[in-house]
Amino acid sequence: MKKIIGILFLCTAAISAQEANNFTKLIEVGIVNHDKGKYKEAIEFYEKALKIQPNSELAFYEISLSYFGLKDYKNTIKYCNKILKKGKKHLLPAYINKGSALDLMGKTKRSIKVFKEAIEKLENNYLLHFNLAINYLKMNETDNAEIHFKKAVLDNPLHGSSHFYLAKINHHNRNKVPALLASYYFLLIEPETIRASDIYNILKENLNSSVEEGENEKNITINLNADSSSEFGAIELMISVMEASKKIEKNKDKSESELFVENTERLFKILGDFPASGNKKSIWWNFYVPMFSKIGNSKHIETYCKFITQIDTKSKIWLENNEDKMKSFINWLDKELK
């Protein structure tokens, strides 16, 4: 009797192993089809896999992705909900897929609720905050959008898109220093893309916009948009003075590139040395300023400036001719970001 039971157990184990193997193969073939854009074919394989393991989170997740690819958002949500009811491993992507599907169906308010629920259940995650922020932008709730872009940055400092939107929002709102800080950081992450060109223009505009040259080149007007008593009013004045200093005799023969390095270094050092205030708890002072203060007081400031402006051909050539400096900067930066 014991031998019979043992044989039956081995047979059952063998069948289970074979089923698991078949399940894995079906999922793998489904993924290959999905990656080729053959979403319907992928779904057929996932459905076969579900016949073997009817409650597989993995299969639910993959099939939701393929329905998303087909723009069948109702079925996307259907399979995401299956994960959200009992799932464990795929909760984050299920929330993101469901929220994105609702948004694309024109149900942005419901999408916002989904991302809020996800943040409450799963705690902080930059993708949840980023997607929520994008939805707030669509609803023209810029202040709420900025709050969650900031939270995304704090969760993942290397998430370029969050810095990108912080730069855009603050530039639009004429918040010069925050726009500069977000721009400087974005270009450190993403210096060569189409978006880099856009942010580089924002950077230059905020560095240069407060100074006007009169009919006599010796006459320079400094325009201040900010309240001098505001968080960054004094620093905006210093930026304007730095820009105006380009016109003085000792700087007249310097290139724009040289002056950019000098003024960036001065700005970073000024920010680092700026006296404490009640606003020092903000992301600008607690996250951005410490990083740029370190760069400004390091030997790598020129390399940093060339790296973030490599969309400019001259900076690109400089980097190619100074590989050792670039390697040294990357090693230093890697240690600072840990």
Rank of each mutant, 00 (worst) to 15 (best):
K2M: 02
G6Y: 04
I7Q: 14
C11E: 03
A13K: 13
E19F: 10
N21Y: 03
N22I: 06
N22Q: 14
F23E: 04
V32N: 07
N33I: 03
K38R: 13
K38T: 04
I43V: 08
E47T: 09
L50I: 09
L50N: 01
K51Y: 09
N55H: 06
I96Q: 03
G106M: 00
R110K: 13
R110N: 15
K113F: 11
E117F: 08
N125H: 15
N131Q: 06
L132D: 04
E141D: 10
N144D: 15
F149E: 00
N156R: 10
H159K: 11
G160R: 01
L166D: 11
K168I: 13
H171A: 03
N173A: 15
R174W: 11
K176M: 11
V177P: 01
Y185C: 08
E192V: 12
E205C: 11
N206D: 02
N223A: 01
E231C: 05
M238N: 02
I239D: 04
S240C: 09
V241R: 05
K247D: 02
E249V: 10
S255M: 09
S257A: 12
F268M: 05
A276H: 03
A276P: 04
K280F: 06
K281D: 13
I295T: 04
T309H: 08
Q310Y: 10
K325T: 07
K325N: 15
N331Y: 12
W332V: 02
L337Y: 10
K338S: 06
